[in-house]
């Protein structure tokens, strides 16, 4: 479904992604971990062309993401994205945040879009906040709205870029619960996170990155019990024993 083939990415002279080869299949939950600056977020952002790759081949549903002929707006409707800092639209209500793209991009009527939005708000457990503005919500609630906003487009893939890193510890659970439920329903998910519990429990596969390279790819049990790479061992010992 998502396929990286020898993908490289430079920011000026800085080599952010080095020869990335990665395949993500339909229904798979892939968790990307690694130290900060290792290129995890960039890898994720390449998938919906928020960043353009420098060379190599990146396809989503067999469409080349970098190809100028690919209708990127259409491709993006199939890829939902959740950001670390939510990025809800502050001048729109929760409901308007969710209905905007379905109405403007998919051409849904207001009624239809609202109905779908309420369904997803219900699903993430904050239907009572439909008419609030983002500023009136807690971080956890805002992030759940952001997830509902992504889901309302009925995407095939959901990307999560450190979705809990900006949250108070108390609110991390409520967001992870929503993500777990989504994973159980068979959504294809790529998640950049530091939540090791979530990775262990939900991931089908762990991808460990350092300095722009994928150093290790393994199922969670294998990765946590017996990481092969020295850098991964060091990372895990630091992150788990504190």
């Amino acid at each position: 479904m998502i396929n990286f083939e020898k993908v490289n990415k430079y920011f000026g002279d800085f080599h952010v992604l080095k020869d990335i080869n990665l395949t993500i299949n339909k229904g798979e939950v892939v968790v990307v971990i690694g130290p900060s600056g290792s290129g995890k977020s960039t890898l994720l952002r390449c998938i919906n062309r928020l960043e353009t790759i420098s060379n190599g081949m990146l396809t989503v549903n067999n469409l080349s993401v970098a190809d100028k002929k690919t209708d990127i707006n259409k491709l993006r409707t199939e890829i939902g994205m959740v950001f670390q800092h939510f990025h809800l639209y502050p001048h729109k209500t929760v409901l308007e945040n969710i209905t905007l793209a379905p109405m403007k991009v998919l051409g849904q009527s207001e009624e239809e879009a609202k109905q779908i939005a309420r369904k997803y708000l219900d699903k993430v457990g904050i239907s009572e906040k439909a008419d609030s503005y983002p500023a009136q919500l807690s971080g956890g609630q805002q992030q759940r709205v952001a997830i509902a906003r992504g889901l309302a487009m009925n995407p095939e893939i959901m990307l999560f870029d450190e979705p809990t890193s900006a949250l108070d510890p108390e609110m991390i659970g409520e967001v992870l619960d929503v993500m777990k439920a989504l994973a159980l329903e068979g959504m294809t998910m790529v998640v950049v996170t530091h939540e090791m519990g979530f990775a262990k429990e939900v991931a089908d596969r762990i991808v460990f990155m350092d300095q722009g390279q994928i150093l290790e790819e393994a199922i969670p049990a294998e990765f946590y019990e017996n990481p092969k790479e020295e850098r991964a061992q060091l990372f895990l010992s630091r992150i788990l024993n504190h």
Partner: peptide, 13 residues
């Protein structure tokens, strides 16, 4: 904030 444009574009607008 730059994220506003990114959020909007990534939803297909």
């Amino acid at each position: 904030p730059k994220g506003q444009m990114e959020a909007a574009r990534s939803s297909g607008l």
